[in-house]
Every structure is written in C-alpha cells, then in structure tokens.
Simulated scan of single mutants.
Amino acid sequence: MFAETDAELAARLAVQTGQILVGIREPLFASGAPQWEVKDAGDAAAQAFLAAELHAHRPDDAVLSEEEGQTDQRRFDAERVWIIDPLDGTREFSEPGRTDWAVHVALWERDRFGAAAVSLPAANAVFATEPAPPLPQVERERPRLITSRSRAPYSAVLVAEGLGCDAVRLGSAGAKAMAVVMGHADIYVHDGGMYQWDSAAPAAVAMAAGFHASRLDGSALVYNARDPWLPDFIVCRPELADDVLRSIWG
C-alpha cells in the first residue's frame, strides 16, 4: 500500500517541482542569465526531481514526459502511466514577471485518469483532482475566450465569432486551462500543435471540477496513445460546450 495516495502524490510533486523552479528562476534573473539558460536550467531541474520522485515512490509505473519523450517503453503495455510536463511554458518561465507557466502531473490508469495536479508556482496555486476545485459561478455579458500569446487558432476565431467572445491571451496550456477552472475565463480552445503532456493534467483537473474537456470534434480525450501527438483540445464551462462545438462545426 502506498504511503501517499496517487492524488496526494500528484499534488505534492506539482507543488514541490514548482518550488524548485521558483528557487532557480529568481537567482538566474538576478545574475543576468540569458533566456535560453533560464529555460534549460528550469527544464533540467524539474525533470530530474520528478523522475527521481516517481522512481522512488512509483517504481513500477511507466512515465511519459516532455523532457524525456518516449524513452520509457514500458508505457505501451502498462496499466499505470504518469504523464508529466515538468515545465509547461518555458518561454514565460524565462521572462521576468510572468506567472503564466505551470507544472503538470497526471496519472493515466488503464483508460481514464487516476489522479492529476497542475501547479502555477509563480502564483502560489495548485489545482488537483482530489479534492477537485469547485465550479465557480460567473456573471459576464459576453463569454471570455482564452487563447495563445502568439497565435489565434482558427477554431478559436470561429468560437469568438460564434459566441461573441471577449479574448484574453496567456502563455502555457496549463495556465490557460486553469484560468477557466478559476473562473477568469470561460473557454479555452486549441488546435494545431500539442502533445499529450500539454493537456493531460489540465484536462483531468478541469473534468474533476465539472468542466467540459474534449477533442475539437467533441470526442473523448484519450491518453497514453502510441503517438504522443494530441493536436487539439477544448476546456470550457459545461453550459457552453454545445455552443462551442456548434460554432466550430456548424
């Protein structure tokens, strides 16, 4: 029997990884380190910590990580696979003052999520599947759609036009999804470039909280597929899901 439940482990690892990243970030900024050095240092430290902790506490489980790709071939036959993004939003992490970067830790067990957590270390916040955050009550005249800093996906344009949304831009996928979970936004739509580790933990937390999360066509999100590419993703308030999908597909 595990000393920590899977949910407790996921939350602890997300928080402690974030603390390590915060501890690395500020001294590098103070020293005038270039952005590439800040990114590399964060990625390496976060990966090393999570890999060591999962090996120590869940040695029989497989791991799929952004920083190590598919080196753990056990996942193809495993019933339990940890899908992690040690530092989601390396660009934002390397920019002083930005808080929109995250740590993702999720457990995919057979055909569903067993546990997950997303931390926003610069905001000193963590969101987990157990206990799940409450679905916030919001009152807005127009839905608020959150999109990438660098590009507006075509699907997001369709949703913005179809629902008359106000648009907000943020960095990492975890930060965007958690903005919806916190009630700061209502819809997050992404297409054209994403991997399983980008959305696994955010999707798990959002669904545990009662939000809608799916592929762009409305189909269920399935993880631990042989190909780690999972190019599209929706998280939104449940009452908006039908309208969001209708805006995309007509």
Results as ranks from 00 to 15, higher is better:
D6M: 09
A7R: 03
L9T: 09
A11F: 03
A14L: 11
Q16I: 04
I24N: 07
E26H: 08
F29Y: 15
Q35V: 12
V38M: 09
A44V: 09
A45L: 09
Q47M: 13
E53Q: 14
L54F: 02
E67G: 14
D72P: 08
R74E: 04
R75Y: 10
D77P: 02
R80D: 07
R80K: 07
D85C: 10
W101F: 13
D111M: 05
R112T: 09
R112D: 03
A123E: 13
A128F: 05
A132T: 02
A132Q: 06
P143T: 05
R149Q: 10
R149I: 12
R151L: 06
P153C: 11
V157P: 06
G162T: 00
L163I: 02
C165T: 14
D166R: 07
L170R: 08
G171V: 11
A173R: 04
A173M: 12
M178C: 15
V181E: 05
M182L: 12
H190P: 05
A200M: 03
A201W: 06
P202V: 15
V205G: 01
M207W: 01
H212S: 10
A213F: 10
R215E: 03
L216S: 01
D217W: 10
A220Q: 02
N224G: 05
R226N: 11
D227A: 11
W229D: 12
L230V: 09
D242M: 00
D243M: 05
